[in-house]
Design a protein around this nucleic acid. Structure first.
Lengths: 167, 167
DNA sequence: ACAAACTTTCATTTTTTTTTGAAAGTTTAA
DNA sequence: TTAAACTTTCAAAAAAAAATGAAAGTTTGT
């Protein structure tokens, strides 16, 4: 396998993995491309390499910047914008965790709290509902807090957990 | 908010959360419904409650059983099949983690290993590619191993991490 | 102020994913 | 063995998500 094939395979795989985790394929592909580029890349080049339209490139780059994992870069004497990805993997994981927590987990928690707070009248059905959603609330809250704690460590959190865990 | 509203809100929210994480909405909704049902539920009732077709119900129930988080149950004297969800949240998390690791992370690791193994000739571009994909391989492998370790604890793993982490 | 060099937006089109439903398959009871 | 009571399958339809591209917007240099 030569470089071009390998790069392409990586971009495709990263895109597919993204889809499976609820991230738009092109967004994941752009991210993959930037991750393995040593230099900042122009929108034109991204369009060319991934064979996508200008609009698509623009929107997904915007989304990646909103996630805080892709940055604009300006080159002296160049009119156009260039893009780079966060390349520090610990930092990348922290940012993704924080965003998903903020966007998805926190709102879900709010709903769980609401629905687990209805007052269950006598019926076993309602009691079970309240019990189960309460447990779920506690569980998700705890998991979310663990994420918070972990991402506070910032650098090398993964290795740190591993150390603590392996005894 | 009364019981019916709460139940519906929970099912809808769980479905939406599923979508955001790459799980088919109906599949997540069926799971939600079964999670908060104190009794096993028939396919007919699932179709009725979620307003979905027989085929849809059948396929998604099958998928949930493949994930190992929904079980068939037979009632004495009843011809039809009933379904229940795994209600132990630790067990649920363990099963989901294992399946996602097996289906998505392991194959991605294989590709990462492949593409990071090309021999980079002199160019800085190729060197950077190999370096970055190697780092990614190490990172994902480590993360996957942490998941493995965690899920070995089986019961109450979340609380255990929390304890270790809080010092 | 103008226009060239870019980027963003969004209505429309395309693609992908999900759902439907009817036919085929299976199981059970008599 | 037959038929009733179910479940599964899968081609086709529908719905949802993503992509296109041209017009509108923005920035910069002269």
């Amino acid at each position: 396998m030569d470089f071009k094939e390998a790069k392409n395979k990586f971009v495709q795989t990263w895109g597919a993995l993204g889809s499976q985790w609820g991230i738009n394929k092109t967004m994941a592909q752009i991210h993959a491309l930037l991750m393995v580029s040593s230099e900042a890349v122009s929108m034109e080049d991204i369009m060319e390499e991934l064979q996508i339209s200008r609009g698509n490139a623009s929107m997904n780059l915007r989304a990646l910047m909103d996630w805080g994992i892709v940055y604009k870069e300006y080159k002296a004497g160049e009119r156009r914008e260039f893009f780079t990805a966060e390349k520090d993997l610990d930092e990348l994981a922290v940012k993704i965790s924080r965003e998903r927590s903020k966007r998805e987990i926190k709102p879900a928690l709010k709903v769980l709290k609401e629905v687990s707070s209805i007052d269950a009248n006598a019926s076993a059905e309602e009691k079970h509902f309240v019990e189960q959603t309460s447990k779920l609330y506690d569980f998700v809250l705890k998991a979310d807090n663990v994420l918070d704690k972990i991402t506070e460590y910032k650098d090398n959190w993964l290795a740190q957990i591993l150390i603590k865990f392996m005894k």
